[in-house]
Design a protein around this nucleic acid. Structure first.
Length: 568
RNA sequence: UGGGGGAUCGUCUAGCGGUAGGACGCCGGCCUUUGGAGCCGGCUACCUAGGUUCGAUUCCUAGUCCCCCAGCCA
């Protein structure tokens, strides 16, 4: 069977589905659905739902999962989103096969269900204004009051409803409401609106309709029509469940699905609500839906995150009913874990510092052999050119090295990855600014990597590129979208004030090893000692652009952090 | 203060009356030509108070705290 690591962890929905199957409920069938409204892009919170619904279906013999667009509101929906959502679900690695549906395909049937309800005296056309309806609804603590139109005859409601459909009335003049209980302590049961008039063009049905079903009506019936067995949604719909059940029962639906609610995903230092994401886009606070700082699937993808990492993350966080905020570090862990296995290693210098090896023959170029991936022997090796003038990382040199810094410093030695041990002899500075402009070092020819004499150990190995061979690149670094610890501000209307003003950083003049010149957009690498990077779509062979997906864990950064905050 | 939900390490999560487990994180060590990866060890939790029981995180009672609901959004 499966190993403990790979076997899916238990959660209450899985348990329930298994129990239902064992009990022969729904004749042993399991049909789930992922029902996005095409009015925005998918984010990692949706990924949790997608993984749950498609996962449940795929781990059950004969189980299926539908993709259904819940497109009952013509004013906000757009085919652009329908397209993007399909791409994202596929990219994540899930397949609905031929089971793609639209709630808008059910409009005719939903209309018939509404007529059934009216005929049964379970729905009526109300002619109160929106304000009046709100007034009559009561409050959380006071019951509502019946609309004067509640006692309208079945025939009159039938006729009015037909005329609503025929387009005889302007928006808002009438609505169709369920006749349940205006005194219910559950506000959702106080004669909820089933249909509203909207003279708007629907992206799929065009102008065929001017009345549109509300979620609480369309959703349960769409589920019923599709034979959904387990209709999984988030916690905020919990008190809609009695209405869900009411609609399915009273409309004489052919099938009764079961609604089950779970807690949506929240992540630290980012935003997940559609409203906030949309606001970031609209106000141009980010570059677009695929901005790598965003938790959208498009953003994560552009950043270099793999679908495998997202799926592993979703499996690991589990499914429960308590509100939860998952630390971003956990997501990063799964990104690193996946990328570590698959990313070719490569050397890149983000902030270059020139190094001249005074005793290395001018004009000589050696091709050093470098391992492509220590985690994967089949990845092989490559040649990296080495010469007299190199660049190393600025932070790998300290003129006045602090405690525990064991990289290069005047008089100190360090190994160049796949190359030689070098020793720093002198530092050249700009006479005006005092800035270090170059280092003069010597190399020890006895210490070439892989050679027999290579006995000596040094404290550190650093990465480098050959000055005359390296390719220029720019590198985009991403930092948390939000400032730390600002839950108060976030709740505000003014939540954008908690945005991190430095969430985006672009490094130019970076130098990468020449093998990267031919790399294709989207390909991922580990820049040794630094992190995982991928080639951005903006990249070209003449101007390479990398995104940092996630940094490597950095023990030295931790040491520094504790050094910076000495106990006073 | 109506209704619906929920409370287990710092974070996420398991547990279904019998020693509270895993992961992330954090701390320490080993190893290392990536201060990466890997390996080893450690850290910290059952909201409170009663009750039932030989035994309660689990069952019961009463509290406390948190989340959701008053769109012709979903």
């Amino acid at each position: 069977m499966t190993t403990p690591e790979s076997s899916p962890s238990s959660n209450f929905i899985r348990d329930l589905v298994v129990a239902d199957r064992a009990a022969g409920k729904h004749r042993g069938r399991v049909v789930t659905r992922f029902p996005p409204e095409p009015n925005g892009y998918l984010h990692i919170g949706h990924a949790k739902s997608i993984a749950l619904n498609f996962g449940l279906a795929s781990e059950t013999p004969g189980g299926v999962c539908h993709l259904r667009f819940d497109d009952t509101n013509p004013t906000t929906e757009d085919p652009e989103y329908v397209q993007a959502i399909q791409e994202d679900v596929r990219w994540l690695g899930f397949d609905w096969h031929d089971r793609m549906f639209y709630a808008s395909d059910y409009f005719e049937q939903l209309y018939a269900f509404a007529v059934t309800l009216i005929k049964k005296g379970k729905a009526y056309v109300d002619s109160l204004t929106p304000d009046q309806i709100r007034e009559h609804r009561g409050t959380l603590t006071e019951p509502g009051r019946d609309s004067p139109y509640r006692t309208r005859s079945v025939d009159e409601s039938l006729e009015l409803f037909a005329r609503m459909r025929a387009g005889e009335f302007p928006d808002g003049l009438h609505v169709l409401r369920a006749k349940i209980d205006m005194g219910s302590p559950n506000i959702n049961l106080r004669d909820p609106i089933l249909y509203r008039i909207r003279h708007a063009t629907h992206y799929r049905t065009g102008s065929a309709w001017c009345i549109y079903p509300a979620y609480d009506f369309a959703h349960p019936l769409s589920d019923a029509l599709e034979g959904i067995t387990h209709s999984i949604c988030t916690l905020e719909f919990e008190d809609h469940r009695p209405l869900y059940d009411w609609v399915v029962a009273e409309a004489d639906a052919p099938h009764r699905p079961q609604q089950i609610e779970f807690a949506r995903l929240n992540l630290t230092s980012t935003v997940m609500s559609k409203r906030k994401l949309l606001e970031l886009i609209d106000k141009k606070l980010v570059a677009g839906w695929d901005d790598p700082r965003l938790p959208t699937l498009k953003g994560l993808r552009r950043r270099g995150v793999t679908p495998e990492a997202i799926r592993a993350f979703c499996e690991h966080i589990g499914v429960a009913k308590r509100d939860a905020i998952v630390e971003m570090q956990l997501l990063e862990h799964f990104i690193r874990e996946d990328l570590n296995k698959r990313s070719p290693r490569v050397m890149a210098v983000l902030r270059p510092l020139k190094v001249v090896l005074d005793n290395y023959p001018d004009g000589l170029v050696e091709e050093l052999e470098a391992v492509n991936n220590p985690e994967d022997a089949s990845a092989g090796t490559r040649k990296v050119p080495f010469s007299r003038t190199l660049y190393i990382e600025q932070e790998d040199f300290r003129e006045d090295p602090p405690k525990q810094f064991y990289r290069l410093a005047p008089g100190r030695e360090v190994r160049l990855r796949y190359g030689y041990i070098i020793k720093c002899l002198s530092v050249t500075k700009d006479p005006h600014t005092g800035q270090i402009t170059e280092l003069h070092c010597t190399y020890d020819p006895e210490t070439k990597s892989g050679s027999a004499q290579e006995q000596r150990k040094v404290k550190a190995t650093i990465h480098w590129v050959s000055a005359s061979h390296a390719a220029q690149a720019s590198v985009r670094l991403y930092h948390p979208l939000l400032l730390p610890d600002q839950p108060k501000l976030l709740a505000d209307q003014d939540w954008t004030r908690s945005l991190n003003p430095h969430s985006f950083e672009c490094l130019t003049g970076c130098l990468v090893e020449p093998s990267l010149r031919s790399a294709m957009p989207g390909s991922r690498f580990q820049f040794e000692r630094q992190g995982y990077f991928c080639i951005d779509p903006d990249s070209s062979s003449s101007a390479l652009v990398f995104n940092r997906t996630v940094s490597l864990k950095d023990a030295w950064a931790k040491v520094q952090k504790t050094q910076q905050t000495p106990p006073r």
